[in-house]
Design a protein around this nucleic acid. Structure first.
Lengths: 116, 116
DNA sequence: TGCCCTTGGTACCCTCTGGAAACCATGATG
DNA sequence: CATCATGGTTTCCAGAGGGTACCAAGGGCA
C-alpha cells in the first residue's frame, strides 16, 4: 500500500502537484522528440501565455526535468531540452494522454448526458 | 503523431485538464479498492477542503468517472464509487504516482541544488 | 420535551494564481 | 534611422482555490 501520496506533507504530493499541472504535461510531450526553442514551445502548445510558459519552464528546470540553454546570439536563442529524468517521465504521462484520447468520447457523452 | 492534445479546442485537452487536477488523481487512487463515503475521502486525502472535494466529486460524476449513491438514512450516507470508466483510469494514474514515488529524491535534490 | 450528536455538505470571505495585453532590450538589417 | 525578431517581463484583472463557520434532518438520551 502506497498511501504516501495522501499525506499533504509527503514529498510525493509536492511532485504530484508539479507534474500534475497541465502545462508541465504538455511541455513534456512537446519536448519528447528533442530540444525546442521558447517560441516553438509557445506556438506548439496552444493557449499558453508567455508568462505562464516561463513560470512552467523555470519550475521544471529547477526540479531537474529539463535544461535551459542560452545562446549568446542576436536575436536571442534559448533551447529547452528534457533531462534523462524528464525523459523518464514521458512514458507515464503518455499513458495518461493516451487514456484521454481513447476515452474522450465516453467522457464527453457522460458530460452531455448530465448537462442535458 | 498525436498532436491533438496541443490544440486548446481539442476535447482531449479538456479531459487532460480535468484528470490532471491533483484532487481528481487522489480521488481515483482513494477509490481504487472500492466505494468510500464522503468523510472517508475527506480524511484519506489530506489537505482537501469539503468545498473543493465536493466540486471535484461532482465534476468527476458528471464526466462518468464515478457514481454518487445517496442512502436515505439519518445521519446521511453518501457513497462514491468508480465506474468502469473511472477504473480504467487507475492504471495510467498509478503509473504517474509510481514515477513520483520513485523519483522524488532526484527531484528534491535538484530543487535544493537550484535553491541553495 | 428539549439537547446534542452525526453526516454531508453550503455560504461567506479572502488570498493567490492564471491569463490578457502591453512593453522592453539587443543588435542585425534595409 | 526605423524595422524586425526573440525571449521574455510588467501590469492589471477576474476567477478559482482554500479556510472557517454554519446548516438541516432526524435519532438517542436525559
Amino acid at each position: 500500500m502506497n498511501g504516501d501520496a495522501f499525506d499533504p506533507d509527503c514529498p510525493t504530493r509536492l511532485i504530484l502537484d508539479r507534474i500534475g499541472d497541465k502545462w508541465s504535461v504538455l511541455v513534456v510531450l512537446s519536448l519528447r522528440n528533442g530540444p525546442r526553442r521558447f517560441t516553438e514551445l509557445r506556438d506548439a502548445i496552444g493557449g499558453v501565455t508567455p508568462k505562464v510558459l516561463t513560470q512552467t519552464l523555470r519550475a521544471m528546470a529547477r526540479d531537474g526535468l529539463l535544461t535551459r540553454h542560452v545562446f549568446a546570439e542576436v536575436p536571442p536563442r534559448v533551447e529547452y531540452e528534457l533531462t534523462p529524468l524528464g525523459q523518464s517521465l514521458h512514458a507515464p504521462i503518455q499513458a495518461v494522454a493516451d487514456w484521454a484520447e481513447h476515452h474522450v468520447n465516453e467522457v464527453m457523452a457522460a458530460r452531455e448526458a448530465a448537462t442535458g
